[in-house]
């Protein structure tokens, strides 16, 4: 790795970190480094400073807060996967995190870094979007809440202002009756998703009462499959559900790359949504 020259600072407090960031718009937060360092290596990013937040304990850890689970931005993927609060309160996050990269990377990469990076191919953005997570940003000016639907602005672009640091994310707990699944489609075990589908579904007798579907890598940001969600509401398990999932790719503009052209990705979104919903509802 031969990055261009940069300065390195490791603030002792969030306030200090946010001040450094506010003063220098070319400075970047360094968390686990698993997305930022590859960019530096390829000289696709030229930050003036890396602000290592790795020692800020207040950014780390998972807390059960009654109606929601609060996941500190610096919590590693591995910690998230093992967290009892996450597995109890928002199991979809744990399920999806198990699909992120490989074990070594999961020990370094962080929950907040994954989201702040705002890569639509990342597995967690679609999950947090589907669960209507709330992002907590902190700066010298205080704290601000950003709903998931507003956080992902564009490809690798989030809604944080200069000087703002992602402190954590509130994931609302869904009550009883909900089932979850994350369906990731990728070519090799460690590869990124060509398409991924995060599904949270509430079953009521033989049909679906409510569904939330987040799509990975189906646009320049993670997206909700609103049309499929609407069609799924009230759909009877079986043929009706299958037909509802045909709507999964509606209004998406998936990317074209070596692993799939847009029409193939749309096709995958439909197939995988059906699989995800069936798995979430426990139907074969």
């Amino acid at each position: 790795m031969i990055p261009a020259q940069f300065e390195y600072v490791r603030p002792d407090s969030l306030a200090e970190a946010s001040q450094v960031l506010a003063e220098d718009e070319d400075a970047k937060v360094l968390a686990g480094g698993q997305s930022l360092l590859p960019l530096l290596r390829l000289r696709l990013a030229y930050p003036s400073k890396l602000v290592d937040v790795g020692r800020l304990a207040e950014l780390r850890g998972v807390h059960d807060r009654g109606d929601h689970v609060y996941i500190g931005a610096l919590t590693t993927h591995d910690e998230v996967m093992r967290s009892e609060a996450v597995n109890d309160g928002c199991p979809l996050v744990a399920l999806a995190t198990a699909h992120v990269a490989d074990r070594a990377i999961r020990h370094r990469g962080t929950f907040g870094g994954s989201l702040a990076h705002a890569d639509p191919a990342g597995d967690l953005p679609a999950v947090v979007l589907a669960l209507d997570g709330v992002f907590v940003a902190r700066s010298a000016g205080g704290e601000r809440e950003i709903p998931a639907a507003e956080f992902f602005v564009d490809y690798l672009e989030n809604a944080l202002d200069a000087g703002e640091i992602l402190a954590g994310v509130r994931i609302p707990k869904l009550g009883p009756g909900w089932g979850f699944h994350y369906e990731k489609f990728h070519r090799t075990a460690q590869a990124w998703a060509i398409v991924g589908v995060a599904a949270a579904v509430r079953r009521s007798n033989g049909s679906i009462a409510e569904a939330r579907i987040g799509l990975t890598n189906m646009g320049s940001t993670p997206v909700r499959a609103h049309a499929a969600e609407a069609a799924l509401q009230g759909a009877e398990l079986g043929d009706q559900v299958r037909r509802a999932c045909e709507e999964a790719a509606a209004d998406t503009e998936p990317p074209a790359d070596l692993h799939g052209r847009p029409d193939y990705r749309r096709h995958l979104a439909r197939v995988l949504t059906h699989r995800a919903v069936r798995a979430a509802t426990g139907t074969p």
Binding site: R187, T188, Q190, A191, L258
Partner: peptide
């Protein structure tokens, strides 16, 4: 050349 990294030039691992 589009396949300049291992994210684009896929090599299988033992898991595959």
């Amino acid at each position: 050349l589009l396949t300049t990294t291992m994210a684009d030039y896929l090599l299988p691992s033992a898991a595959d």
